Amino acid sequence: MGNDIRVLLVDDQELVRYGFRLLLEAQPGITVVGEAADGAQALGAVDRLHPDVVLMDVRMPGISGIEATKRITGLRPDIRILVLTTYDLDEYAFAALGAGASGFLLKDTRPGDLVTAIHAVHSGDAVVSPRITAKLIEVAAPHLGVLRTVNADAALSELTAREREIFVLIARGETNSEIAAALYLSESTVKANVGRVFFKLSLRNRVEAVIRAYELGLVGQ
């Protein structure tokens, strides 16, 4: 238990928190250390409980999930925020990624995928569900039309064949562990390649990777 991932649940619906607690407490390697019903309570709980990962609702009374995410990551960048929302097209949830969240999932995500996502963000990975990836491209597409003429081969010339392969999988919403399994590589090897891809293409995160891949015509709507 000493090495368990410490999780804080933040949601204004008690029944939702109860369901997540039941699910996560049945998982080896995860301990739910507390709950909060809004952003203000979440800030206090972070100070008291020192969680590793926060499951953060977006729309809550008072301090929203976005503002709470911004404050938590600003003060404690070591804490990972995994945003959960009911809506697959939610400007507030997209803003949460910009506020420093490490992941964005829908509340109807399969239990196993949620557990995988918690482990992924705890290890330093980022998670954006495939449905959100598709919506991100849909939202960004009207503003990227002229960029689709960019020569992909020229733009990607600095990437090795392996790095390009990994770049496409990142853009499809795959986590490092999923990429490792698909390509029969270790997670450390994948993580190193992801870092090189981001450096060579001047990307800050997976959201920018999705947009850039769309610009280059590597993924579509």
Score class of each variant (00 low, 15 high):
Tyr184Asp: 15
Gly19Lys: 04
Ile118Phe: 02
Gly62Glu: 13
Arg148Tyr: 15
Ser157Ile: 13
Thr160Met: 11
Thr73Ser: 06
Phe104Met: 02
Val58Asp: 01
Gly217Met: 11
Leu23Phe: 10
Lys135Cys: 13
Glu67Tyr: 04
Pro28Glu: 12
Ala152Phe: 08
Glu138Phe: 10
Glu215Ser: 13
Ser123Thr: 14
Leu23Gln: 08
Leu201Glu: 06
Val190Gly: 04
Gly124Ser: 07
Arg48Asp: 13
Lys135Leu: 09
Leu15Val: 15
Glu35Asn: 07
Ala182Met: 14
Ile72Ala: 02
Ala36Asn: 06
Ser186Val: 13
Arg110Pro: 00
Ile66Ala: 05
His143Thr: 12
Val10Cys: 04
Ser177Ile: 10
Leu49Asp: 04
Arg162Tyr: 11
Val168Ile: 15
Ser202Cys: 11
Thr85Tyr: 01
Ala37Asp: 12
Val46Glu: 01
Phe94Lys: 02
Lys107Asn: 03
Phe20Cys: 03
Ile79Leu: 03
Val194His: 02
Leu55Thr: 08
Tyr184Arg: 15
Ala36His: 05
Val54Tyr: 00
Gly124Ala: 10
Leu147Asn: 07
Asn176Glu: 14
Ile211Thr: 12
Gln27Thr: 13
Val128Tyr: 04
Leu156Val: 10
Leu218Ile: 10
Thr189Glu: 15
Ala26Val: 09
Ser186Met: 13
Ala134Arg: 09
Gly112Phe: 08
Val121Asp: 00
Phe104Pro: 00
Gly2Ser: 15
Lys107Val: 10
Gly124Asp: 04
Gln221Glu: 15
Gly29Lys: 14
Glu67Leu: 09
Val7Ile: 10
Ser129Asp: 07
Leu218Gln: 07
Arg164Val: 11
Arg206Asn: 06
Ala209Pro: 02
Pro28Met: 11
Val127Ala: 03
Gly173His: 01
Gly124Phe: 05
Met1Leu: 13
Asp57Leu: 03
Leu185Gln: 14
Ala192Arg: 15
Val58Tyr: 01
Glu158Asn: 14
Thr73Met: 10
Arg172Ile: 10
Ser123Lys: 09
Asp88His: 09
Leu185Ile: 12
Thr133Trp: 01
Gly39Trp: 01
Pro111Thr: 09
Glu91Ser: 11
Leu24Ser: 06
Glu208Lys: 09
Gly39Thr: 04
Arg164Tyr: 14
Leu8Ser: 03
Ala140Arg: 06
Val190Ala: 07
Pro142Gly: 07
Ile170Asn: 03
Gly220Met: 15
Leu185Thr: 11
Glu187Pro: 01
Asp12Lys: 06
Glu158His: 11
Val58Thr: 05
Asp113Ala: 14
Arg212Asn: 12
Asn3Arg: 10
Leu203Arg: 04
Glu208Met: 14
Tyr92Phe: 13
Val139Cys: 06
Asp57Pro: 06
Val58Cys: 03
Ile170Ser: 02
Arg204His: 15
Glu91Cys: 06
Ala117Asp: 02
Ala95Asp: 13
Pro28Tyr: 11
Thr31His: 08
Leu82Lys: 01
Thr85Ser: 05
Ile211Arg: 04
Ile79Lys: 02
Ile30Cys: 04
Asn176Ser: 14
Asp125Lys: 04
Ile211Tyr: 07
Asn151Lys: 13
Gly65Gln: 02
Leu9Arg: 03
Val53Cys: 00
Glu67Pro: 02
Pro130Gln: 11
Ala120Asn: 05
Ala155Leu: 08
Asp4Phe: 06
